[in-house]
Design a protein around this nucleic acid. Structure first.
Lengths: 116, 116
DNA sequence: CTCGTACTACGAGATTCAACGTACCATTGC
DNA sequence: GCAATGGTACGTTGAATCTCGTAGTACGAG
């Protein structure tokens, strides 16, 4: 394709579920995993799209991909590709509309009260 | 024991976790199972202790016991024995204190938006 | 004491989940 | 073109989860 853009780096979108069709149990399962909940916490704090590799997860690359996929398919995050990287961001506005107060309540809870 | 009560039927308590030591991910996992979420919904609607067999679950008794155990061990419900029955009730007040707004948000969400 | 009810504990099977390594693809930069 | 970077897809392995049947316990009624 000779007409491809050189300076606007594509921002290819990935398939995401319609939140109206996502049952709450799916979201709860997705967030019930400590590693995934940690990812969501990071995203909520940054409030900006984050590169997948900038989370500093202590798991392998393929495991990381797996968890991001679970989060995306449960409607919690959205991802888009830009250049060689894939960025993730929280679908917080949509989630708030579909499940009012849910994400706020989860993020407000301290994960491990004993550990801090 | 000749001094045992005849009219007050015992109400034996079962071991329950201290909610301060329960991580939010454990609660989310417990509620991420449709059958268990259904149990919690029933309990929230009745607002009174419910006999385990009055839920009309379409699984075997042992499966039922298993799910009630998961809910109890994650701090979502409390159970006590009375006579030959075991009653369950939501620990809603404690949950609200430990995870403000969480249970409310989850119960407010329609489980399957497509189905109803 | 015997029977029925209500429920549990244990063990087993099937399914799902989490983690990984390897191979692979797309983009960037030389 | 070639190598490096960032990430995916596939297959696998071990652990956890869900389901059940069976056996058993505790209580109440007769």
């Amino acid at each position: 394709m000779s007409t491809r853009a050189r300076r606007a780096p594509a921002k290819k979108a990935l398939p995401h579920p319609d939140l109206r069709e996502v049952p709450v149990s799916l979201v709860l399962r997705a967030l019930g995993e400590p590693l995934r909940l940690g990812i969501v916490r990071s995203l909520a704090q940054s409030e900006h799209p984050m590169n997948c590799s900038s989370f500093g997860l202590s798991v392998s690359k393929s495991t990381s991909t797996y968890h991001f996929k679970v989060l995306r398919e449960s409607g919690v995050i959205s991802q888009f590709e830009e250049g060689t990287s894939r960025y993730s961001e929280l679908r917080d506005t949509e989630l708030e509309q579909r499940f009012p107060g849910l994400l706020t309540a989860i993020l407000a809870a301290t994960e491990d009260p004993a550990g801090g």
